[in-house]
């Protein structure tokens, strides 16, 4: 089985349309933004361009180590898989992620972990992000 991860190809092409965020949220069959795992915000004002916050599938992910309940399983090749049944919502993983790529659904009070499905990349009109097969990247 192949393992995928998201890669940021060229942030300078990002226009800040947030289509990727809405796409991620739509996975759950709803509109809006509460459940997106990818976040686009300006770099200190729109005049300076944008930055993306999304899981980069660390080879050795600190979020998994931070979880006291083994709710985050390390994937082979990088990244994590969430077992929502074991998550108590203590947010230790959120604190452990330097790039703030672990999110929290404030509406449903649930942890949001990227599942590396690539739907965000599919809806990005400007090829800013891309789903990559970890094997071919390494």
């Amino acid at each position: 089985m192949s393992t995928h991860r998201l890669a940021v190809i060229d942030m300078d092409r990002c226009v800040g349309c947030q289509s990727c965020m809405f796409a991620c949220n739509r996975r759950h069959g709803s509109g809006g933004l509460a459940r997106t795992a990818i976040h686009i915000s300006s770099v200190g004002g729109i005049e300076r361009g944008f930055s993306v916050r999304v899981c980069r599938a660390c080879r050795d992910p600190p979020c998994a180590d931070a979880c006291p309940n083994t709710a985050l399983l390390k994937r082979e090749g990088g990244g994590v898989k969430l077992n929502p049944k074991l998550c108590t919502g203590c947010k230790s993983c959120i604190d452990a992620c330097l790039i703030q790529a672990v999110s929290w659904d404030t509406e449903k009070n649930l942890l949001i972990i990227c599942i590396y499905c690539g739907i965000c990349a599919k809806y990005c009109p400007y090829q800013v992000i891309e789903l990559q097969d970890i094997k071919t990247v390494i």
Binding site: N25, R26, H28, G29, S30, G31, G32, L33, A34, R35, D105, T106, E107
Partner: peptide, 14 residues
């Protein structure tokens, strides 16, 4: 704000 909007038929919506 960062809410989500429920829809009646997720498949048709998409």
């Amino acid at each position: 704000g960062e809410g989500s909007i429920p829809v009646t038929d997720g498949k048709q919506y998409r």
